[in-house]
């Protein structure tokens, strides 16, 4: 029986430090950083598509994860029916979405099922907790499979350690979603409202992508795991921003186009079941992708700068 990956303290790699600018360097204008050719920076972070293929391999070769998705979708649907909801069933495609896009779906589902504004807020938190627990478990299973090649009960126990990080990530997603919504409404007049709204969701993915994998793989408390996750995202040439934006756009397209497509229906068709389960699988693979990407660079993630002494 697997005992799970070795518990690690933080790595001992050197901190990243930006090179000091030389004197004869030409002064940059407002768009200088965009217009100037970027220096080639070698990054140990795997490319986006390669990462996702690895994530697919990790997720799809796990009978536990393959069984978890349809089981969760079925149970969630039965619970929704029991409390009087009639759909749309395709909302459940958001059951395994990462914080950000998943938060957006949570708000849609809560608005559809809750009787009042207070009830909708409570429903958002319930859905947030459920999705946090599911993604904590999925991430932990992915880390264990990447480290040991198998899954064990360790993942279940370890997921409890990851849960606070995942809840924090989702809370961050909710906060950014609300800020994005408010700013989006305010700035709708000048045409960037929607951009800000989507930007808030992408920012959540960018900031929270690696923290759960860190919590699963290493012995960090929640704040340290979150900070280390953000430092991982900010590593030069990590491509995390592109991954976050691509994932957000893909999920947003699904959320807006596919989710309402079922309409109100108690007995989903076989294609609706298949679609929701397939989208769930693809999202589980995204969680595995983030775990793979973190483990690939765990040894070179910069350490936080030491606190400066007071003079």
């Amino acid at each position: 029986m697997s005992q799970g990956p070795k518990k690690r303290s933080s790595n001992t790699g050197k901190g990243y430090r930006a090179p000091a600018p030389t004197r004869d360097e030409p002064r940059r204008g407002l768009l200088g950083s965009f217009l100037q050719p970027r220096p080639a920076v070698a990054s140990p972070m795997p490319k986006g598509w390669l990462s996702y293929v690895r994530g697919l391999g990790v997720a799809f070769s796990s009978p536990i994860l393959l069984g978890l998705v349809p089981a969760v979708v079925l149970v969630e649907w039965l619970v929704l029916l029991a409390i009087g909801s009639q759909g749309p069933f395709t909302f459940l495609a958001g059951a395994f979405q990462w914080p950000g896009p998943g938060t957006f779906v949570d708000t849609l589902v809560s608005a559809a099922v809750a009787p009042s504004a207070g009830g909708a807020l409570a429903a958002v938190f319930v859905l947030l907790l459920v999705r946090s627990a599911l993604l904590a478990f999925v991430t932990t299973v992915a880390v264990e499979r990447l480290r040991t090649g198998s899954s064990s009960t360790w993942a279940l126990r370890r997921a409890l350690h990851v849960l606070p990080v995942m809840i924090t990530a989702n809370m961050m997603g909710l906060a950014l979603y609300l800020i994005g919504s408010i700013l989006g409404q305010v700035l709708q007049q000048i045409g960037i409202g929607f951009l800000l709204f989507v930007g808030g969701i992408a920012a959540t993915v960018y900031l929270t992508a690696y923290a759960p994998a860190i919590a699963a793989d290493e012995e960090h408390r929640m704040p340290a795991a979150m900070q280390r996750g953000i430092r991982t995202s900010r590593m030069p040439a990590s491509g995390t921003l592109m991954v976050a934006v691509a994932y957000t756009i893909a999920m947003f397209a699904i959320d807006l186009a596919y989710l309402p497509s079922a309409g109100l229906r108690v007995t989903p068709s076989v294609t609706q079941w298949a679609g929701v389960i397939a989208i769930g699988y693809l999202n589980v693979a995204v969680a595995a992708m983030f775990a793979f990407r973190y483990l690939s660079v765990a040894s070179v993630v910069p350490e936080p700068a030491p606190p400066q002494r007071r003079r």
């Binding site: 690690r8 070769s61 480290r147 040991t148 198998s150 483990l295 690939s296 040894s299």
Partner: peptide, 14 residues
Amino acid sequence: LLTRRTPLPMSFPD
């Protein structure tokens, strides 16, 4: 198919 090409567990720098 994917894990046949890249077996698990994977090796990482650390």
